[in-house]
Each structure stands twice: as C-alpha cells, then as structure tokens.
C-alpha cells in the first residue's frame, strides 16, 4: 500500500503503524486536517493492524465524501479482494480504473486478475449450490415416485 499524494498526518500515522504502535498511529490519523486525510490514515492503520474489515469500512466511509480518490479506491479494492468480497471489489475497481494514473497500472492489472479469479470462485460456489439443489430435488422426486409406485399393492 503506497502513500496518497497529500500526506502530512498520513505519513506520520503510517510511520507509527509501520513501527507497530497502532494506537499512536490511530491518534495521529484522527488529527488529520481533512475528512479525506482522516479516512485514508485510519484505513491505513487498520489495514496494518490486521483489522481488514475495519479498514474496508474506513475506506468506504472516505469514499462517501471523496468518491473519486484513487488511493481510497485502490485500497478498498485490494482489501475487498483480500476479504473475498467480489461484488464490492468489482464496484470500486471500476471507479479506480477511471481515476488511476499511469503509475498505478500494474496494481490495477493485478487487482483485475485477482478479481477475475475471485469471481470465478464465487461463480463456482453458486454453481455448486445450484447443482446440489437440483440433485437434491430430483432425488426427492424420484424417491416420492418410487415410494408411490412400489407401495401400491400389485394386482
């Protein structure tokens, strides 16, 4: 995860988080000068502290007020992918693609590939559930027919 463009409080918070003092980093994040900076720093700290759900929530909160911020978009996409949340990742990835600058191309491509992989797994899971449902229903129907047919007294 790289630093966003405007960085004073963010960089201080990031340095503390990298040093393993997440609480101090959190306080610095809270002291950010704009809602965007606060959201960015909070997402960064939570991500590095291992609270991925919390980091995604912070990034999404930041995106509500700054929906085109490329750093938040890339962060939200990557965390959603790490949490196996394909739909959420797909949505932020689309916006990120629109906003990303050239240096982010590589990250974008990697995220796109990860998303394709995740979507494939999700589709596989959905297919598995559908297949299992059909087989179970067919089995139940067959059993009912057999039961009805065999239970009847032959003439």
């Amino acid at each position: 995860m790289t630093a966003p463009v405007q960085a004073t409080h963010f960089e201080q918070a990031a340095a503390q988080a990298r040093a393993g003092d997440y609480l101090a980093a959190w306080k610095l994040a809270d002291a950010g000068t704009t809602p965007l900076e606060v959201a960015q720093a909070r997402a960064f700290v939570r991500y590095h502290a291992g609270d991925l759900d919390g980091a995604l929530m912070q990034a999404r909160e930041g995106l509500r007020s700054s929906p085109e911020d490329p750093w938040l978009l890339s962060t939200a996409t990557q965390i959603a992918l790490a949490l196996h949340r394909g739909a959420a990742a797909e949505r932020t990835l689309a916006s990120w693609k629109a906003q990303a600058g050239d240096p982010e191309r590589e990250s974008l491509e990697r995220a796109t590939a990860d998303l394709v992989e995740l979507r494939r797994a999700e589709a596989g899971a959905a297919r598995g559930v559908r297949r299992a449902g059909w087989i179970s229903a067919a089995g139940a129907l067959l059993a009912a027919c057999l039961l009805a047919g065999l239970a009847r007294r032959p003439r």
């Binding site: 596989g124 598995g128 559930v129 449902g133």
Partner: peptide, 20 residues
C-alpha cells in the same frame, strides 16, 4: 465444491452439497 472456497462463502454448498 470448487477448490479454494473460503468457509464464509461455503454455507450453501455445505448445506445442499453434502445432501446431494
């Protein structure tokens, strides 16, 4: 059950897959 499925994605498959 596709390979590499996480536990939180697997509820439906667990329920119906084992039956099928």
């Amino acid at each position: 059950v596709p390979q590499g499925l996480g536990l939180d994605e697997a509820a439906g498959v667990l329920r119906w897959g084992s039956l099928a």
